[in-house]
Design a protein around this nucleic acid. Structure first.
Length: 482
RNA sequence: CGAGGUGUAGCGCAGUCUGGUAGCGCACAUGGUUUGGGACCAUGGGGCCGAAGGUUCGAAUCCUUUCACCUCGACCA
């Protein structure tokens, strides 16, 4: 019996020893996803999809508040259209899935399953835009895209993934840049304030930027195992696509002009980040603002008179303000505790005969496993305070973890040493040369994640490039990445 | 695409070396006793042993081919 107990407890792999296995265990045991019959494609189950819906809501309301509207473009893109912007096609060609037949008839022109929608959207923008009076174009779409990946992992890299892609046109380069930054800031805000994940923000190197962009900006998070996760990108596309697609309009001077273009996206990959930043040895830990269930009520000795009635009464009160679930299945309380902990529910409310007698209930928080006893008429307010505290604590914990896993290096030996003994971000001066970036990647496995913005810039050591030793102006953050 | 590994009940596995009635744990179903950190007893259902071919009186087990998945590397949100 004791042996069985032990085996049951071992449901999740040890996260320090085998993090990938822990991750796989968590997402499948919590019923977030399952593998589908098609390689690399996953099924998102209700618990996982509920998280995605909450993420969508948070972003969508901010997109709308900044003047964007949603629209929807087709799944398929003609081959010739995808090929109009040279860098773009070169970047995406290796991972495009093609439709070549309709029924049993060969198509005249193969159709790409969209890997991203710049091209088809631009082709339509070219038809719609005539005058500067119509600008800016501020549109977004929620959809899925397909990229034929060689190795896949649920949420982090799958052949199809859910995302949103914003595509905007502007009169001036300045406006496009402002839009690019505005959206990056929204990404950061949602990531930090809602998902409780601290983000490094900055610019991508030319090597890492989007195929066809002038500049790519990124939010980068650090996972529990010290690997970075690119969590969202905002691109200033300049006039690459608008020229390639001949999007022209009559400007204020009555002359034909090309608008400036941006695109930006976050994906269901964020869910992977959520899991790998906050999760612990007991499974998921979800920030209250995103958790599908914020409070789970677990009746104890529910067969006893009055217990379930009281539990339902509490549910009715709590669900006016919170997302609440009552587990009245006939599993044992202990089993339920573990089950809902694994699912990451922020607060558990225990109510049993003893509590009812004393006019109280027990609240247990997922992040610290503290338990407090509260009077029944204060459960609502106390739970609210707790949820706020948990939200805050998760962010602070994640920030502390990132700080502990961030080092700086002045030369390559130090770089390798520090990355080996404390995997995470390495801050190092970088001269800006592609050759140095390549060499760092090759020697250490770490890629350049971002060059932080000026206000977060600093000088490491004597200010020379960590790789070639030549004078360098900027510090860059490196890490191994998902 | 390189290097390793694994396919046996829904899940996790044993059995394969040495061929001979397909098993264990969990989960599931029914009944009962339980319930404040993964309860217990009893009974029961569930299998083309990844697929195809071969050797053999007989194949989960031996041989050949093939497919799928996983882990680690190179490419990518």
């Amino acid at each position: 019996m004791a042996k069985n107990k032990k085996q049951n407890k071992k449901e999740l792999a040890d996260m320090e020893e085998n993090f990938p296995q822990w991750y796989t265990d968590v997402i499948s045991k919590t019923e977030m996803v399952d593998y589908s019959p098609v390689k690399g494609f996953m099924v998102i189950r209700p618990y996982g999809y509920a998280i995605w819906e909450n993420i969508q809501k948070e972003f969508d309301k901010r997109f709308k508040a900044t003047g964007h509207q949603n629209m929807y473009f087709p799944l398929l893109i003609p081959k010739s259209m995808l090929e109009k912007e040279a860098e773009h096609v070169e970047g995406f060609a290796p991972e495009v899935a093609w439709v070549t037949k309709g029924g049993d008839k060969e198509l005249n022109e193969p159709l790409a399953v969209r890997p991203t929608s710049e091209t088809i959207i631009c082709s339509m923008y070219a038809k719609w835009l005539h005058s500067y009076r119509q600008l800016p174009f501020l549109y977004n779409q929620w959809c899925s895209v397909v990229r034929w990946e060689k190795t896949t992992r649920p949420f982090l890299r799958t052949s199809e993934f859910l995302w949103q892609e914003g595509h905007t046109l502007h009169e001036t380069a300045e406006e496009a840049q402002a839009e690019t930054m505005q959206m990056l800031n929204i990404y950061r805000e949602v990531a930090e304030e809602v998902l409780a994940i601290p983000m490094l923000t900055g610019r991508k190197s030319d090597k890492e930027k989007f195929a066809g962009a002038d500049a790519t900006y990124t939010i980068e998070a650090l996972m529990h195992d010290g690997q970075a996760l690119q969590s969202g990108t905002s691109h200033n596309l300049g006039q690459h696509f608008t020229k390639a697609f001949e999007i022209q309009y009559l400007d204020r001077n009555n002359e034909q002009s090309y608008p400036y273009h941006t695109s930006w996206g976050v994906s269901s990959r964020l869910i992977g980040g959520l899991i790998m930043v906050h999760g612990d040895e007991n499974g998921l830990v979800l920030p209250p603002k995103i958790a599908p269930v914020q409070i789970v009520i677990i009746p104890v000795a529910q067969h006893k008179e009055g217990v379930l009635d009281k539990a339902y009464e509490l549910k009715k009160i709590l669900e006016q303000n919170y997302r609440v679930e009552l587990d009245d299945s006939d599993n044992s309380p202990g089993w339920k505790f573990n089950q809902w902990e694994m699912k990451g529910v922020p607060i558990r409310l225990e109510i049993g005969p003893r509590d009812i007698e004393n006019g109280q209930a027990v609240l247990a928080r997922r992040d610290t496993s503290e338990k407090i006893t509260v009077a029944l008429d204060e459960v609502g307010t106390q739970a609210g305070d707790l949820l706020d505290a948990i939200q805050k604590n998760l962010f602070e914990k994640a920030l502390k973890m990132r700080e502990e896993k961030t080092s700086s290096a002045e030369n390559m030996d130090e770089f390798q040493e520090k990355l080996a003994e404390n995997p995470g971000f390495i801050k190092a001066m970088w001269c800006g040369d592609r050759a140095c970036e390549d060499q760092i990647k090759e020697q250490t496995g770490a890629s350049l994640r971002a060059v932080p913005f000026d206000e977060e810039q600093e000088i490491i050591g004597d200010g020379t490039c960590v790789c070639c030793g030549k004078p360098a102006e900027k510090v860059a953050w490196f890490a191994r990445a998902y």
